[in-house]
Design a protein around this nucleic acid. Structure first.
Lengths: 343, 343
DNA sequence: GACACGAGTGTTAACGCTCACAATCGAACC
DNA sequence: GGTTCGATTGTGAGCGTTAACACTCGTGTC
């Protein structure tokens, strides 16, 4: 007892054990592990054999302690139950893994700046090397701007403040394409079912819609507003059904469009006969709505991947506070849209 | 220069800095941080003040190195883009956070045992304290059973092998409730659109359906099979539409039910007039399908929470390899189901 | 044949924290 | 009035890794 191992006690092997077995110093083991130059091939082989034999795993905490790198990235997400955030998270995780990073998630329940602050702090305390924030509310973005100094950070979403590197979909151009498409089909104007007012994506999509109508010189109807959920879309749909002059609605996301369709069916409208509907996102289910939904496709996976790319560039010192990447969305035509019936 | 700090160089404060400022030893600082007893209140206050003044953050890598605990849990998920896994992940993350743990995710692309093995290894190398596997394929579960020795692990999903603690929804009972409901409405039999054959959840739901039919002594039609996606449900729907005697279909998830509804509409069936449809999961959109979908509700968030609870119990030594928690699902009635039209 | 040089390897010192144990101090006790 | 005991605090030794530097050889060079 005392110093000597009883043998039955199965301690995890450490670098020194590998070194002893291979007949080298621990530093040489470290060199092999980290691919350092100037290690003779047969030495390397002996070390590798020892590693295999002992099933040695480097201790990441020890490594992190001395290198000051955890090889872990943090992701702050708003509601990872929604398709968009979930898909982005997925893209980020894949990209991170192939770049050799782990991903630690934190999902926010409330969208105020303080929550974002807390989440980022928490992640930082854990020692992440960088953070991606998927929280496209105005309040979140300004909070993020305040934090950014303490840890490398990238925002994904939307917005014009470029105090933080960020990547986003061309929300405005997508909304423009959708609206223009409807006008081109002869609709006198296009109604809009917007997302929550404090989300940047809502704002941008609404702005794209509004701008297109103004450019075309047609009347701009009042905006209906939902909270992204199908439920809120349904409620808005009931309100819209009471208006008599609606022939086309552009919804800020597909879930709300689904709710809208449901409400319109219930109130006896035919789609696209009476009313044309366009969504945003192109969730996988959109093609199977009744009728299949014309929508603006976002490549969420790509979005996540780009965000991660940006973050890694930032980590490697290619700093650039003002970077703002855009990903172009694409209008996908399906049967929920038809020409206006002119009376 | 050399050893002395120039002052401009902003080194992160460490415990020793706090100790010096508070006029105590580093050990006392550690005591305050960890809530150890026997620290005089005014000493504690001085330490806390020093911590605040320096904005000191404990270094988690150093702590992890010595305690051999990272306060991080790993989650292996199959396709976190699907609603189910995403919602479970969300539940797990919330529960983990309130228990003081971080969550590191890895999402699998392929479902073979080797991928699961790799993912768990990766997480283990990172030093997670435990792992939750959301990967309810037969292959994954057997793989998991093999690994389990190396790190505390909990599986969430389904299955009967109880070599690993696990928590799952009562898939069989949910399927039974759905099928029985349809039979009670006078349908001569119920067709089934199943999920992938190698998923435990598919198997259990199919078994529940089959058993109910057999018990009732009605004919058991051949199974259609999809891959959980709306697309596959659509395809299956086209095949089902060619059969003449179908009046009721039980789908293994809501997305496939959506695709099925789409195909049935296209082929001129009325729902529930000609055919009744039931789904499984109760995704938030299901209430707004055309028509609103009768389905079996799973509480994914609760599932994630329970899984985490189990894992933490395991971590704290309350070991129990054979534990298997069930969460009861609930049939939610909506308009996609109606009485059989007897001819 | 002395010398520089670079490849290959070892030695020692951090990294920032917790743990085990030692030390100190005052009050209570006989 | 010395002793005991518990509350409070300090000291020293690691945890397992990487970084910095020192060392040992051959091999050319002049």
């Amino acid at each position: 007892m005392g110093t000597e191992d009883t043998g039955t006690e199965q301690r995890q092997p450490v670098m020194a054990d590998v070194a002893k077995l291979a007949g080298v110093s621990h530093q040489t083991v470290s060199r092999v592990l980290n691919g350092a130059p100037h290690v003779r091939p047969d030495t390397r082989d002996r070390v590798l054999a020892a590693i295999r034999e002992l099933d040695y795993r480097p201790n990441s905490a020890a490594r992190a302690l001395v290198t000051r790198r955890s090889q872990t990235l943090g992701v702050v997400s708003f509601d990872s139950t929604l398709y968009g955030p979930a898909a982005m998270l997925d893209g980020i995780e894949r990209a991170a893994r192939s770049a050799g990073y782990f991903v630690s998630v934190t999902s926010l329940r409330s969208l105020d700046g303080r929550s974002v602050q807390e989440a980022v702090d928490r992640l930082r305390d854990q020692g992440v090397d960088g953070v991606v924030v998927i929280a496209p509310q105005t309040s979140a973005v300004s909070a993020v701007a305040r934090i950014s100094s303490s840890v490398p950070l990238v925002a994904v979403g939307s917005g014009n403040q470029a105090q933080v590197p960020m990547v986003s979909v061309g929300n405005r151009s997508g909304a423009e394409a959708a609206t223009r498409h409807l006008l081109d089909l002869g609709h006198r104007t296009v109604h809009h079912l917007a997302g929550p007012a404090n989300w940047l994506e809502s704002q941008d999509r609404e702005e794209g819609w509004r701008r297109t109508l103004e450019h075309a010189g047609v009347p701009v109807p009042g905006v209906e507003r939902g909270d992204w959920s199908a439920r809120s879309g349904y409620r808005a749909g009931l309100r819209i059904a009471e208006l008599s002059d609606v022939t086309a609605v552009f919804c800020a996301n597909d879930q709300m469009a689904l709710g809208l369709l449901c409400a319109l069916h219930e109130t006896g409208r035919s789609i696209p006969g009476d009313i044309s509907v366009v969504g945003f996102d192109d969730i996988p289910e959109a093609a199977y709505f009744t009728p299949p939904l014309t929508t603006v496709r976002q490549d969420f996976g790509e979005l996540g991947r780009r965000a991660l790319e940006l973050l890694i560039e930032e980590l490697e010192g290619l700093a650039h506070a003002g970077t703002h990447d855009f990903i172009a969305p694409e209008l996908v035509l399906r049967r929920s849209v038809g020409p206006a019936v002119r009376r």
